[in-house]
Design a protein around this nucleic acid. Structure first.
Lengths: 327, 327
DNA sequence: CTCATTTATGTAACCGGTTACACTCATTGT
DNA sequence: ACAATGAGTGTAACCGGTTACATAAATGAG
């Protein structure tokens, strides 16, 4: 690969001039500019971004850490982030944390050493101090962790309440909840919303709240057990859509008809909701918008623009489909 | 952020010694090492990877270009790539090409300038010359483009034949095909496999091959039209699973029962197959394995190890589920 | 006791850009 | 006619690491 000095030499100018042509700043005679550009072309010169980054202390790269890109919520988010940042000349480094603090910390360290300009985290198992320690702009998505850290989330509790109220509205008498992981705070918020509505009902028992770990498989097993032990359950609010599909599977296997014997509603609004049968009702998050907002906020932080608000909470949207549509 | 020179100064040694401690090479006295390490700790020193990359001409970063991470095939692939490369200390830069040559080229340029150590491309709309122009290791996945470029693919044609034969085997008399995009060669291969089996049947007509662009939505519309015009169709082989779910949707809407009136089989083996109703039969690719193989091959190329084979073709696995299980 | 190694450390060049500063002309205003 | 300003270009330091080479003390073999 040709370097700037080679171009300079061949064009008979100094490196400063080549740099000026490259960045179109400073004075350069039109003749000279033309000659330099031609030489660059002839040598197939491409600037070395590593060298540039070293001096400028900015890499035009941002880090995106998600729990697991395989979870259908995150590709959409990642896509939004990429679309927005790419437009402004940034590329993204992707990392999966598997919700493990060590992996998260490891990525944070790596990203810091790679001099990324900013970080978007859609996962957080780390104490705030660790986050604050790094002096790079950071935006947290999907899970609020601390007032000091810019955050984009949705109204989990409110959404959960809407979900459960919807189930009640269509006549469910015994509503259970499949809960996400204990250490994920949006899972707790959604559970709280559920409890807000039914926690004081005379029929309520803690047994109606079971763990599904945000995965289809664990939810499926949990749902099978739950529905066997409590055939009276006629409505289930799953903490996310993935778990809701697990419930659908369980019901199907147990010969429980949906939505008549059992109504099911999820949370997130991933595409998959429309491929199940019946289609899955859900509280849809504006996933793409969240990604966009996070990316825009991060870029503003990087470019030190005035930030209007560093905490944004989006509403979620109740979408009624076959799994809760009773005739 | 502290630099090496600061550490050196405070520890009363030269930068060379600090570097030697950092990389554990060369001779360093135990006392000195200890003092340097303590100083690093005290200053919270972290090496600047950009500076290191500039000198070493390697960034421990690889580029991964996919058509669209939102397509469920690719997160699994990306995950495999990340798992393998991460283990060896690499991080990945993710890019979506949307199958557009300009975007692909743009990413290739960016990655070159960012000095990535290698590239995995799961998309290709570019002429081989452009690929060959860049003197970085590259591995192409999912689509073969040229014998000279290391490639990991699956037996598309053979798999397609197996799919269609399976449909015939369960008694389908009129089998149609929803095809992927014209410019994607694995789509053409799968179509070819379909034609191999039924192209010469007396009932065959080119109208039985319709375009679904590898998306659920377009496949859905195409399938509705196809099934309306040709109610005699009793089997559909979709070029990928996403399109197969579109067919399921269409059949559902038209009141066609699956699998009895219409058997449907897809290709890829994405997770979603198990959440549809009935569950989707498919030709499963070993997606994760493919990602692993690509990543391992790329790393071998980067590290200039002896490559045993630079072209690998994996078999696909016929998985029979409800959508083709007739009683 | 001498010479060859091994151990230990420092100096300075280098990677490939960017930019502060200096310098030379050519214009322009007074 | 001369100072001030602007256009055009070059030199060299700098970003923060790595490493070739030089130097010197300690160790060991003969």
């Amino acid at each position: 690969m040709a370097t700037m000095r080679e171009v300079a030499k061949k064009a008979g100018v100094s490196v400063a001039t080549v740099s000026r042509v490259l960045n179109s700043n400073g004075y350069v005679n039109d003749e000279t500019r033309k000659k330099v550009l031609e030489t660059m072309d002839a040598l197939k010169y491409k600037p070395n971004n590593v060298a540039r980054s070293l001096f400028k202390k900015q890499t035009k790269t941002i880090g995106l850490i998600v729990p697991d890109i395989t979870n259908p919520f995150f590709p959409q988010l990642a896509r939004a982030v990429e679309d927005v940042t790419n437009e402004k000349g940034y590329t993204i480094i992707l990392g999966n944390s598997d919700e493990k603090p060590e992996k998260e910390q490891r990525y944070l360290d790596i990203l810091e050493q790679k001099y990324v300009d900013g970080i978007i985290m859609a996962t957080n198992t780390l104490p705030i101090e660790h986050i604050k320690l790094l002096d790079k702009p950071i935006v947290v998505v999907d899970r609020a962790i601390h007032a000091d850290v810019p955050t984009i989330v949705v109204q989990n509790r409110k959404g959960a309440k809407a979900a459960v109220n919807h189930l009640k509205g269509i006549g469910c008498q015994r509503i259970a909840h499949i809960k996400g992981p204990e250490h994920v705070d949006n899972a707790n918020e959604r559970c709280q919303g559920y409890l807000d509505i039914v926690g004081t009902e005379p029929w309520f028992t803690p047994e109606f709240v079971v763990d599904g770990n945000y995965t289809t498989k664990e939810s499926y097993h949990a749902a099978v057990k739950l529905l066997r032990n409590h055939p009276e359950i006629d409505g289930i609010f799953a903490g996310n859509d993935l778990m809701a599909t697990g419930v659908l599977k369980a019901a199907h296997e147990l010969g429980i008809s949906i939505p008549d014997e059992l109504a099911v509603i999820g949370f997130d609004g991933i595409d998959m909701c429309e491929t199940t049968h019946p289609e899955l009702s859900t509280l849809a998050q504006p996933i793409y918008q969240i990604g966009e907002a996070a990316a825009e906020l991060l870029i503003d932080l990087i470019e030190k623009k005035q930030i209007s608000e560093s905490f944004k909470e989006y509403p979620v949207d109740l979408i009624i489909r076959g799994s809760t549509k009773r005739t």
